[in-house]
């Protein structure tokens, strides 16, 4: 009798965790689908809402926080007119990023997102924020590369920063282009840990290469 009771309890637990696991899989899948389709501030907000809900249900997971921050950074990019709103979205992203840094300081991607946040802050007012935030962004990307030197998103951000500076000074960008080409060719070699892990970046590198080929 005792055996059957423990089997019963075990089964109940299994059922419950499977249900939750299924829910996590399902919710992440659907939210990431929404993110991939998002075209407006509102779309990103709605996707972000889902990630908040997931983050609340799974407080030990850093991935929902990551995607939530990504949504709000995208909102700041898509909001074109009101700089205060843009900063407001980034404040929201920063909350998730701070939580992630606490939760998963060993994850390279966490610092890529932090670097992206600082670049987004910079873009709101490059004249006055340039110095401070370019240094902060470079530092975060450096940290991401320190943890995982092959991280393609960290490599992309580094190349984009380098190239931006070179273009501003009218310097030759061929070194950056070579790096971008190498990154593009090697992109598929990087093993994504799961379908919920970050995968963005390839398009952005392709865009860099388009700029490279149109420069002549």
């Amino acid at each position: 009798m005792r055996t059957s009771m423990s089997i019963f309890a075990g089964l109940l637990f299994l059922a419950a965790t499977t249900a939750s696991g299924q829910n996590y899989q399902q919710a992440m899948g659907s939210a990431l689908g929404e993110f991939a389709q998002a075209k407006t501030v509102e779309d990103f907000r709605n996707a972000g809402n889902k990630f908040v809900m997931i983050a609340n249900a799974e407080p030990a997971e850093w991935l929902p926080l990551y995607h939530h921050a990504h949504c709000y950074i995208m909102m700041s990019f898509f909001e074109r007119t009101n700089p205060e709103k843009r900063d407001g979205y980034l404040d929201e992203a920063a909350i998730s990023i701070d939580k992630m840094v606490e939760l998963a300081p060993d994850q390279s991607e966490v610092f890529v997102m932090q670097g992206l946040l600082y670049s987004a802050r910079l873009m709101i007012d490059p004249m006055t924020r340039g110095q401070q935030y370019s240094a902060m962004s470079a530092q975060s990307i450096g940290r991401a590369l320190g943890i995982e030197p092959v991280n393609p998103r960290a490599r992309y951000m580094q190349i984009a920063n380098e190239m931006g500076t070179a273009q501003f000074f009218g310097n030759d960008i061929s070194a950056s282009c070579e790096k971008a080409q190498k990154l593009f060719d090697e992109w598929a070699d990087y093993t994504v840990k799961s379908s919920f892990h970050p995968q963005w970046g390839r398009e952005q590198v392709a865009e860099v290469l388009r700029q490279c080929s149109s420069r002549n």
Partner: peptide, 16 residues
């Protein structure tokens, strides 16, 4: 308020 997040805390049930 469009875009507000309404959900049951700690679950996966909710909507914007």
């Amino acid at each position: 308020l469009p875009g507000a997040n309404i959900y049951l805390k700690g679950t996966y049930d909710g909507v914007s």
